[in-house]
Simulated scan of single mutants.
Amino acid sequence: MDRRDIEYFLAVVDHGSFARAARSLRVSQPSVSDAVRKLERGLGVALFDRSSKGATPTATGIRMLAEAREIERKFQLLEHDARAETKTKRAHLHLALPGILAVHPMADLLSAFLAQRTEVDVRLSDPPTEQAVWEAVASGAADFGFVTQLRQPGFHSLFLGTHRLVAVFPPGTPPGLGPVDVDEFARSAWVSGPPRGFFSRQLVDEQVKARGLVQNRLVVTDHRQAIGPLTLKGAGPSLLNPIEAADLVARGAVVRPTTPVFERPYYVIYSDSADVDSDERRHFLAVASALVPEFDATHRSALEVCDGSL
């Protein structure tokens, strides 16, 4: 299997026929057909149901689609990085962080940093777990990482603030119900991400297990950006940071505090061996340090908005 096979497979899916896929790729139809047949022989399964009307993915083809798109996306990223290396050298930063920190504090931090350093290219990546963030920084793949726990020697860290999570309920939920306890989470069909990579889920799972409870039902999504909309549409409550929750309150959601309080600090980390003498890295740390009071003020302001929905 090579990249061309993946590219041709995706083109047939997107265009619904081998002929239209060939035209979009500006190659002959036999080239597309041969590439897909080669892929099918290698996998030992049919990927398309073929008819005079076109080509429709089989069940196996549909299952393969998401993986194929991810492979193609990674190829495109590699090409982008390779092209960037051949252009005029520009300073760049690679930041690895879990999704929950991409909204706060990253939005404010990057805005302040890039306002002063317009010549720096920045890339944000979302490793699947916090351990993967540490590994990215340790290997040099990322210049800085953002984590909620300090657990490994050989790194420097800067405390940035604390995330206190709140429970968000759909519009129409009666206000004034008081704090949500772990028993209620265990009974509820709440909206969450998978255990790996979602520390809100990890916190609840730890408490449920510690109390010997059994989780009733979960609505699990890999897409963090879907949690808020699913909650608003009544799929179930969710556990979010107050910055995200405040946006949902403006759209009618109801927020309740939790007991116990779910909160964790967050830090920026970098390796002992990292080159922090470079201007962009040194400046990034300086901006992050200067914004710590602002991060706290933003968090408190969002909590006040959430408290107003109780």
Rank of each mutant, 00 (worst) to 15 (best):
A102E: 05
F144Q: 02
V133K: 03
A132R: 04
A96V: 07
W190T: 02
V180P: 06
L160P: 00
A96M: 13
F185Q: 01
S188A: 15
Q116W: 09
G193C: 07
R117F: 03
E184I: 07
G172A: 07
V133C: 03
L93Q: 08
E119Y: 05
F155G: 02
G161F: 14
H104P: 00
Q116N: 06
V120W: 05
T173M: 06
D181N: 13
Q116C: 05
L160H: 11
P127L: 11
L124D: 03
A167H: 01
F169L: 04
G176R: 08
P153Y: 05
P179K: 05
R151A: 15
F159Y: 14
T173L: 05
A91C: 03
G178W: 03
W134G: 08
P128C: 10
L177S: 13
H104G: 02
G99I: 10
L110C: 09
A91G: 13
T173E: 13
A136W: 00
V191A: 04
H104E: 15
S139D: 12
G178L: 04
G154H: 04
F159G: 09
E119Q: 08
L109S: 04
R187H: 12
Q149D: 14
D121S: 12
R123Q: 12
P195M: 01
L101F: 03
G193Y: 02
A167F: 02
V137I: 11
P153F: 06
A132C: 09
F113G: 05
P171Y: 03
L101C: 05
A91R: 06
P175T: 09
D181W: 00
P194N: 04
T173K: 13
R196G: 12
P127Q: 09
S192F: 01
R164L: 12
G161P: 06
I100A: 09
D143R: 07
G161K: 07
V103H: 05
G172N: 09
G176V: 13
H163G: 04
R201P: 06
A189T: 13
L97K: 03
T162Q: 15
Q152I: 05
A141W: 05
R164N: 08
Q149R: 11
W134Y: 14
A167T: 07
V180G: 03
F169V: 01
G99M: 13
P128F: 15
A189Y: 02
A142W: 00
G154L: 08
V137L: 07
P179I: 08
D181K: 15
D183K: 10
S139H: 02
S111D: 10
D183P: 00
G154R: 02
D121L: 04
V147I: 14
P171F: 06
R201S: 12
